Computed example of a mutant assay.
Amino acid sequence: MFDPITLQALLTCFGLDPLDWHCVGFGTGLINTTWVLKDRNGTIKYILQKVNRQVFKQPEDIAHNLRVVGDHLAKRHPDYLFVRPVPALDGEAFVRSEEGEYYRLFPFIGGSRTLDVVHKPEQAFEAARSFARFSHLLADLDPALLRDTLPHFHDLSRRYRAFEEALDNAPAILKAGAVAEIGTLKSHAGYVSDLEALKRSPDFPLRVMHHDTKISNILFDRQDKALCVIDLDTVMPGYFISDVGDMMRTYLSPASEEAQDLDSVHVRPEYFRAIVAGYLSGMEGGLTPLERGQFLFAGRFMIYMQALRFLTDFLEGDVYYGARYPGHNLLRAKNQIRLLESFNAAEGVFRGMLEALLPVGA
């Protein structure tokens, strides 16, 4: 919780009387720290957030991107619900504390809610359609106008090189404990060259993508209809497989990446269908023929990359994700490898769904 003096100073910078507001911790996000501001009647009116400077080195780049995207949507699609930061009294998107921390304020959307887990395919459909619509409405915005808030975030080639370097430098005892996982990830290294080949094609364009499409980054109404996308810090240039793949990685299995019971990790084909159908609906025919053929690769790419990242962190001594117990990141890697195996085993079922959703000539 805030030091009262710090909170008072922050609220004053946003033009709010500190005596009128009560600040309470909020949400389950792992990156930024979030609170809600309640008025004298106990009604939530604002979201207050501190940006994680260990992750986002240049918060000004986030502010730049939100301004560019927000201005574009306001001009071209004024009816779209885009949750802009509330400007401080000096007109800036952030208030910087004396300690160098960056804080921002968002309006709270009344009647909205977020989900931490996808409970039914209809929610996956709504989320996929919402993330797709966001990118579709920005299709005529030049991605080069945006800055990379997390450079190389979904760069699979770079992730694989980091894995190889970690493997070269890791203590023998760590490598000995992950022989099977190392071998599995090496056996799928062809995904790296597959992606590089796609990126060379003019029919696989850079787009404005969200890059963090977990279900909690959608605001739903009480009837489970998606209102809008939120948590836009990772909006930057990218490829459609990043958003689709992240949904597949986080929606398909009933178990999360933290599940220790690997038998609980498996894909649910009805959720795959919901993601693809929702995404196609939101894009309104905006995908190229080459992109439409990459829904299977999207899932493989993202699940594989996350397995690489977890195993790399294990080999490097848990320096990025941290670990709550010995072997935590190794187990996370095993979890994602199991998900990848289940995904690939379901390829025949998935292809049948894709043929129905993407008829020849569509």
Rank of each mutant, 00 (worst) to 15 (best):
Q8L: 04
L11H: 04
C13H: 14
D17P: 06
P18W: 04
D20L: 09
D20K: 13
G25V: 11
G27N: 06
W35A: 01
W35N: 02
L37A: 06
K38C: 15
D39H: 03
F56Y: 04
F56P: 01
K57M: 00
Q58M: 02
E60M: 00
E60K: 00
E60D: 03
D61F: 05
N65W: 00
N65C: 01
L66C: 14
L66A: 13
R67S: 13
V69D: 10
V69Q: 10
H72D: 14
A74N: 12
A74Y: 13
K75P: 07
K75A: 15
R76F: 11
R76G: 08
V83Y: 13
P87Q: 07
A93L: 06
V95Q: 08
V95E: 08
R104S: 01
F106M: 09
F108M: 06
I109D: 08
R113G: 08
V117I: 12
V117Q: 09
K120W: 08
P121V: 11
P121Y: 12
E122L: 13
A124C: 07
F125P: 05
R129C: 06
S130M: 12
F131W: 12
A132K: 02
F134A: 09
L137Q: 04
L137R: 04
L137W: 02
L138K: 02
D140K: 14
A144S: 15
L146D: 12
L146T: 15
P151H: 00
H152I: 07
F153E: 03
A162S: 06
E165H: 07
A172H: 11
A178K: 02
V179H: 02
E181N: 09
K186S: 12
H188Y: 12
G190D: 10
Y191E: 05
S201A: 11
S201H: 11
P202S: 11
F204K: 13
R207Q: 10
V208L: 06
H210T: 12
I215H: 07
L219A: 05
Q223I: 15
Q223K: 15
L227W: 04
C228D: 01
D231K: 07
D233E: 08
P237S: 11
P237A: 14
G238F: 00
S242C: 14
D246V: 03
T250V: 05
Y251T: 08
Q260V: 09
D263V: 04
S264Y: 04
S264K: 14
Y271L: 10
F272D: 10
R273C: 01
I275H: 13
I275R: 10
V276T: 03
L280Q: 04
S281I: 00
E284Y: 10
T288C: 06
T288L: 05
P289A: 03
L296S: 07
A298W: 02
A298I: 01
G299L: 03
A307K: 07
R309E: 05
G317P: 05
Y321R: 01
G327S: 09
G327D: 07
N329Y: 05
R332I: 00
R332V: 01
N335M: 00
Q336V: 02
L339E: 03
L340W: 05
F343T: 02
A346E: 10
V349K: 08
G352R: 09
P359Q: 12
